[in-house]
């Protein structure tokens, strides 16, 4: 069963338990500078608060809602696309989408071309620029935990249920129910975005004001290059055959060039 996580943005209180859980479970290093940043700081950073050692970030957006200024906390991490661009873009297959949902990355296969980083529609991939032997870093959706029938580290610690783990289908239904009940924005971000993602977001404030890429394509990204890659071998062989033919034809009766 494909798993997923539902993020109910209005329910998040910004306690950052989730990001600490991520650090604990993945043994991510603490950086003095990052530690002292606030959710407001992170929301303004070019990289959305995600760093090689921060796979998830709670970002605060101060918005207007019904004439009142309100704050919303948004958890950022890899969306775990259903049909991920990172997987299809990797020429050495270092990424993989597991049937249970997580999109995982094996550094031992990685060449380090960073095409995945360019391809990811949500710009969540980070690179260890400071290391001599760097790898790509991102949320792995606690692949081993999920494989062992445990929920992801972050959802397991959320005190308010702002992030819940479950079967994606059920979560999607739940999301739609909540949208109706609570008068949220009528959109489950992740239902169709980039062909659908394992992580689903619902909100009572406009997504575009919280750095969501609302104009992202709804087609799975790999579909953009699939046809090209399928055709390549045939085009290649065909083209070679044509060239061979031309070669023979044009060289007929002529001295070969040396």
């Amino acid at each position: 069963m494909a798993k997923g996580v539902l993020v109910d943005i209005p329910k998040c209180i910004g306690c950052e338990s989730c990001s600490v859980a991520c650090k604990l479970w993945n043994e991510l290093e603490w950086d003095e500078q990052e530690k002292n940043k606030t959710a407001i700081d992170r929301a303004k950073e070019p990289n959305n608060g995600l760093w090689p050692e921060e796979w998830t970030s709670i970002n605060r957006y101060d918005l207007e809602k019904d004439g009142e200024s309100v704050a919303r906390y948004v958890k950022a991490q890899c969306m775990h696309c259903e049909d991920p661009a990172c997987v299809s873009s990797c020429f050495s297959k270092a990424f993989q989408k597991l049937p249970e949902g997580p999109v995982i990355y094996d550094q031992s296969l990685c060449v380090g071309c960073r095409y995945c980083m360019m391809a990811c529609p949500f710009d969540v991939l980070r690179y260890e620029w400071k290391k001599a032997i760097p790898g790509v870093r991102k949320c792995q959706m606690c692949a081993t935990r999920v494989a062992n029938n445990q929920e992801t580290a972050c959802t397991s610690v959320c005190p308010t249920g702002a992030i819940i783990f479950g079967d994606r289908d059920q979560l999607l239904a739940e999301a739609k129910k909540r949208i109706k009940e609570n008068g949220y924005v009528d959109r489950v971000f992740g239902e169709k975005e980039a062909g659908g993602t394992s992580w689903l977001y619902i909100s009572d404030t406009p997504f575009e004001q919280m750095r969501f890429r609302t104009d992202v394509t709804t087609k799975p990204l790999p579909s953009y290059t699939e046809g090209y890659m399928k055709a390549t071998p045939f085009v290649g062989v065909g083209w070679a055959a044509i060239l061979a033919g031309l070669y023979v034809f044009n060289n007929k009766g002529k001295e070969p060039l040396d």
Partner: peptide, 28 residues
């Protein structure tokens, strides 16, 4: 390319670990 990629010693990976959906695979 060898200078530019992060794990240059892994340059041969795509020969055996085929990411054949990638355009870069073809380029490589």
């Amino acid at each position: 390319l060898l200078i530019e990629v992060g794990q240059w010693f892994n340059f041969w990976r795509p020969y055996v670990s085929w990411g054949h959906a990638s355009v870069l695979f073809e380029v490589f």
